[in-house]
Simulated scan of single mutants.
Amino acid sequence: MTATYTAGGPGGSGPSAPSFLQDDPHRPVVRIGDTVRRPLHAWSATVHELLLHLEAVGFPYSPRFLGIDADGREVLTYLDGESGGAAWHRVVADAGLVAMARLLREYHDAVRDFRPAAPAGWAADDGTFEVGELVCHGDFGPWNLVWRGDRPIGILDWDYVYPGPPVHDVAYALEYVAPFRDDRYSCESLHHPVPPDRRRRLETFAGGYGLTTVDGLVDEVIEQQRNVWRRARQLAAEGRQPQLAWQESGVLDLAGERLAWSRANRHLFG
């Protein structure tokens, strides 16, 4: 559950001319040259420490953190490619679906032993690591990947990372790529040419990630839908944006309806 972020496209009328990648009054994102400027959150220092770790271990798919500019915005390297709404086409075919799953596994391997020292905390999470947990991306959907053809070459929007079991990221992604949506929405909005074989797609993604069984995975997706909905409502209650705007516009009510659909239609996933 996220606002749309667009990575591709021209960078303005000159090499350093600002251009909006996300023209959202609550969270404007601007490209200047080869950098992206984004507003800070209370927990941004934790995110920055994570990005510095990924750079140090040679993980090539995350933007590099370059510091804070004079306007108090974080400065990241720009990742060139397709993202946002254009990305949904990329995961309809198996090649993109599997590539997305493999990228998630690579990310998890890169952060398996990482523990941040920053006291800034996390978004709507107490920050406690249990055995077997790692720093989940927390928003690993097709729109937050940068694509070149059917290959993802970058991961965007790290604002909602949190400590959790790796399967949380797997389940979050599967809600959107299986997808846990009805046939009409899958075809009209997610670009599936025919109603998707949800069980096969779930198994394909799980296999690409490296899971040897999908037992319990459907329930994990439904539980993760509930958790994401809960976190968004908590952030809205704290007055955080864009979650407050989502609450006021009915987006969070829609998320609750989609959770109810998943519960009623879990038989479609085997």
Rank of each mutant, 00 (worst) to 15 (best):
R198W: 08
V170N: 04
Q225R: 14
V194E: 13
V57G: 02
R198P: 12
L244K: 13
T46H: 03
R198S: 02
V47C: 07
S249Q: 14
L211Y: 05
R258A: 11
H48N: 13
D69M: 04
A120R: 14
D150W: 12
E223F: 03
R181Q: 08
G85L: 10
E82D: 15
A264I: 01
R231Q: 10
V131P: 15
L252V: 00
G67W: 02
A123C: 11
E133T: 10
D109S: 11
F114H: 00
A206N: 02
G216N: 03
D94I: 00
L235E: 13
W143E: 15
P142I: 11
G210P: 00
S186P: 08
D126G: 09
G208W: 13
L174E: 07
N227T: 08
E130P: 01
R148N: 15
W147F: 14
P163E: 02
D24W: 06
R102Q: 10
A124M: 09
T212L: 06
P116M: 05
E223Q: 13
F180C: 01
S249K: 09
G84V: 03
V194D: 14
P60C: 00
T35H: 01
E223T: 09
L79P: 01
G164R: 02
V218M: 01
D159M: 06
G127C: 08
A3Q: 08
W261K: 06
D24C: 00
W143F: 09
L156W: 09
H168D: 15
F269T: 03
R201W: 13
P63M: 07
V98Y: 01
D157Y: 07
L190Y: 06
